[in-house]
Design a protein around this nucleic acid. Structure first.
Length: 460
RNA sequence: UCCCCAGUAGCUCAGUUGGCAGAGCAGAUGGCUGUUAACCAUCGGGUCCGCGGUUCAAGUCCGUGCUGGGGAGCCA
């Protein structure tokens, strides 16, 4: 018999005869002649209460079934006689599909996040992680919907790459060479004998590729995994994470800022509309201010201020910062958090950063000191979006690459796009996991990605 | 990579001034006529992270290693 999802049964407005559910036992409570089982099938946060009575042929077996066991139950959906739930399933037949022995590590009480990370293969069976990954799925869908509704094309930029994209971070090397016997030429590894005939890495950003498609399809975006081999040991970094990168032709820095604000508001609103029950769990158990923070993002205009203005506010703040605030120095976490969490208490966009702290592809402003860059900062997370208007003027781009010691040969195709029908364009990158952290109030990035990759940790 | 904190039962954690290893939950067994993280009773369960040291005596103090976490840097 075809199973019905618990989500659909709980939404029913009338009793239904002869339905089958399949799921996992969260808890069992026995009474004389009855056993109450809470069944979860992952379709929603809520469990369905199954009432099994001693008239069932395998009642003895049922009272032995434990938390974590997989079951199939057929019966009637009826109004619950007990308090606490509207519907319950009166079992007419129940099959144990897969027993979970008493070594099953999840219990019906709360576990610590650190312990759950050691059983990442089982943690989605908990309420909290089930909710995280349902929201993650819904958020992915919302990203595609946002861009689809606005006529953007979805581009699959490559994961394997020979360019290092401006040195955005340490790279993971990809090779088929025998690591125990690496071929050498002039005492260096001879990559001409490697699979691609050149040194190859995992991508750190799809931006440069996406620009090529913006300069042909108009408005595009990428959404895929990116990799950084940084030895970062923080609650905000993983080695494999997902990034959303829209790129728009005929678009300047202001257009990029407009889109980033609209984008964040749309995604937040979408998750609030579609994931209410799951969000409630986080508002109750993870971050008591969550709903206020999310409503704040939707209702407030993002304050836009130039880097220069930001530096002035910080200098006059009277705060005792660990790191010095001065024009030409990058803003530190503590500075960003002061601005968004204390001074403005809502998201802010900082733009026109000094060129010396930004990569080569950002467009030089007329002052020749700053570039048309922007960062979106949100409370609790800090930088969630980084973007810029790209340098579309061939001679200036080449001069900048020279200045920064980058070889034109390595980026020949990128530079060539400025030679033929070059237009002004802009885009940004959004850290998908960081947005999930913002939306759920979860403070460790390892807890919003199914199987996190961090230094010394790739067990799953 | 740097700074700080932690590691005790399957899980969450207590363990005072160095002096017999503890609780709740989970598990097993039994009880209970509709339970809501059900409840009641009984029972089982320990390399106190590893190694070394101080001491009559170390879970506790010291050194060191490993693992985890928090913060910083780098960044998304």
């Amino acid at each position: 018999m075809k199973r019905i999802r618990i989500l659909n049964l709980l939404r029913s407005d009338k009793p239904i005869d002869n339905v089958t559910i399949m799921g996992w036992i969260r808890t069992r409570r026995d009474s004389k002649g009855f056993s109450f089982l809470e069944i979860n099938d992952g379709s929603c946060l809520k469990n369905l209460q199954v009432v099994a009575d001693s008239s069932l042929a395998n009642y003895e077996e049922i009272t032995k079934s434990s938390t974590g066991s997989a079951v199939s139950v057929t019966g009637s959906l009826i109004e619950s006689q007990g308090k606490g739930q509207t519907w319950e399933l009166k079992a007419e037949g129940m099959e144990i599909l897969g027993l979970a022995p008493d070594t099953f590590p999840l219990q019906k009480k709360r576990h610590g996040d650190e312990f759950l990370r050691t059983i990442a293969h089982l943690r989605p069976r908990t309420n909290k992680y089930g909710a995280v990954f349902r929201i993650r799925s819904e958020l992915s869908f919302a990203i595609h919907k946002f861009f689809k509704d606005r006529g953007f094309q979805y581009i699959h930029t490559p994961v394997l790459t020979a360019s290092d994209c401006e040195g955005a971070g340490e790279l993971f090397k990809v090779t088929t060479l025998d690591l125990d016997n690496v071929p050498k030429k002039d005492r260096k590894t001879d990559f001409s004998l490697d699979f691609f005939g050149a040194a190859t890495n995992l991508t750190v950003s799809g931006q440069l590729s996406a620009e090529m498609f913006a300069l042909s399809l108009g408005d595009v975006y990428t959404f895929g995994p990116t990799f950084r081999a940084e030895n970062s040991n923080t609650s905000r970094h993983v080695a494999e994470f997902w990034m959303v990168e829209p790129e728009m032709a005929f678009s300047d820095l202001n257009d990029a800022m407009d889109l980033s604000e609209e984008f964040l508001k749309y995604l937040t609103g979408h998750v609030m509309d579609e994931c209410g029950a799951d969000l409630e769990l986080f508002a109750k158990h993870v971050d008591k201010n969550l709903m206020a923070t999310l409503n704040g993002l939707i209702s407030s205009g993002f304050t836009r201020l130039s880097y220069k203005e930001a530096v002035e506010i910080l200098s006059k703040s009277g705060q005792n910062f660990e790191f010095e605030v001065a024009f030409g120095k990058d803003l530190q976490s503590e500075h960003e958090r002061y601005l968004t969490e204390r001074y403005f208490q809502h998201p802010v966009i900082i733009y026109n950063y000094p060129k010396n702290i930004k990569p080569f592809y950002m467009r030089i402003n007329d002052d020749n000191k700053t570039v048309a860059a922007m960062d979106v900062l949100v409370p609790n997370i800090g930088e969630i979006i980084g973007g810029s208007q790209r340098e579309e003027r061939l001679n200036i781009l080449e001069a900048r690459m020279n200045e920064m010691g980058l070889s034109k040969k390595d980026y020949w195709w990128y530079v060539e796009s400025r030679e033929y029908g070059s237009v002004y364009h802009s885009g940004f990158g959004l850290g998908f996991e960081r947005l999930l952290m913002f939306l759920t109030g979860i403070t460790n990035i390892r807890d919003v990605i199914p199987f996190p990759r961090t230094p010394n940790s790739i067990s799953f």
